[in-house]
Amino acid sequence: MELFGIFFSALLINNILLIRFLALCSFFGVSTKIDTAVGMSFAVVFVMTISSAVSWIIYHFILSPFHLEFLRTASFILTIAALVQLEELYLRKMIPALYRAMGIYLPLITTNCAILAVAFLAIDYRFGFLSAMVYSLGVSIGYSLAIVLFAYVRERLALAPIPKWFQGYPIAFITAALMSLAFLGFTGMFGL
């Protein structure tokens, strides 16, 4: 039940894009088409889960015993960058279809702030390993949910008769704000 709560709180109530406002650059950058949004989502789910697992291990088994918690920013960035490189190499050789599907998005999320934020938050919330995994899975699926929904809306907006001054990013920002308001409605769900 506790894991269930962690998952849905990360997915909906504290949605990383629409409530926490992290990773907004990719939220606007790759949401013009559903295809790219889905590609980015897969890459984020993949990288976020693995990188938060590895950074959790590094924090609890290397940094904590030596009392070097203050090094976590530097070491997490190092970890995530190296990990994404490794994943890219692995996918290119082993699963070329997935590699092509993710394309440019895989290296792109090396610098995505949401990835680093989840690694931090999982530690700040004092999660155990399993909870941290469930949490990062929830966050990344929440990211996918928000960005894919947003991409659907933006595809419709591209054809809608919008006044010239609101076309493009202005209407996208307004849409994002409305979606964010809608997601506020999840607050208090499941008694959380």
């Binding site: 030596f66 070097l68 090094l71 530097a74 190092l78 490794l86 190499l89 692995y90 082993m94």
Partner: peptide, 24 residues
């Protein structure tokens, strides 16, 4: 200590990447 830990991490990752680049 922090130099050793961070440098060690960096070295391990670099070695891993070098091996992986060859293996994969």
């Amino acid at each position: 200590l922090s130099v050793i830990v961070l440098g060690g991490l960096g070295f391990i990752f670099a070695a891993l990447l070098a091996l992986a680049a060859d293996y994969f």
